[in-house]
Design a protein around this nucleic acid. Structure first.
Lengths: 95, 95
DNA sequence: TAGCGATGTCACCGATCGATTACTTGCGAA
DNA sequence: TTCGCAAGTAATCGATCGGTGACATCGCTA
């Protein structure tokens, strides 16, 4: 499962919670947070704190890893032109 | 690379940024955020907003995926006792 | 060593957070 | 259909956020 948006993450947390047979109160307690926060995060709250999210994932015995697929190779091809454009912009700003 | 803490994430963002030859201003601009925020996130800011973090990762052409290794299998073994303990606690609270 | 670009830090501001408590609504089993 | 549990939502509060602009410090190259 790829995580690209807060909604993806919320769905993951809910899915895992249900699979473990936990209710929101139990997971919130394990994660050291509030049920209210968990409700919001499960619905994709974009401004939820990363530290609490990672703690919640740990409470679900889940961690995340970097998804380095074909996209990563794509970066290598595009990298030179990206650098040049960025630095030309920066130079133009300098009088 | 496994992401378990805000520091892990901050290190990933910095590492990728440098590999792409970007400075903080350029990446902040691409991610639609401020340089200040990026500085803090790169240093492991635990209360940074998940939505901004995921956007920043996208600007680096990185996504995250769920790390389902031996830990995942471990959950299956421990799951029954965990459920029982949680629900016994909940029952004891009910008069 | 000097200079310059990059990174680190500060002050300020309106917006939002996360926790607590309580009430409302939804869902599934009997 | 009814009931009970779980999930959804609201009010309140002190803490912190993220952005802007400016200054301080660091690191690297000539």
């Amino acid at each position: 499962m790829i995580i690209r948006t807060p909604n993806d993450l919320g769905a993951l947390i809910r899915d895992r919670r249900i699979k473990l047979g936990l209710d929101q109160i139990s997971l919130a307690k394990r994660a050291g947070t509030s049920r209210k926060w968990l409700v919001e995060v499960e619905h994709g709250k974009p401004r939820a704190a990363i530290g609490l999210i990672l703690r919640t994932l740990r409470a679900l015995d889940v961690s995340l890893k970097v998804n380095d697929g074909s996209k990563s190779r794509g970066i290598e091809h595009f990298s030179p032109s990206v650098d040049i454009d960025e630095h030309l912009d920066r130079l133009r700003k300098k009088p």
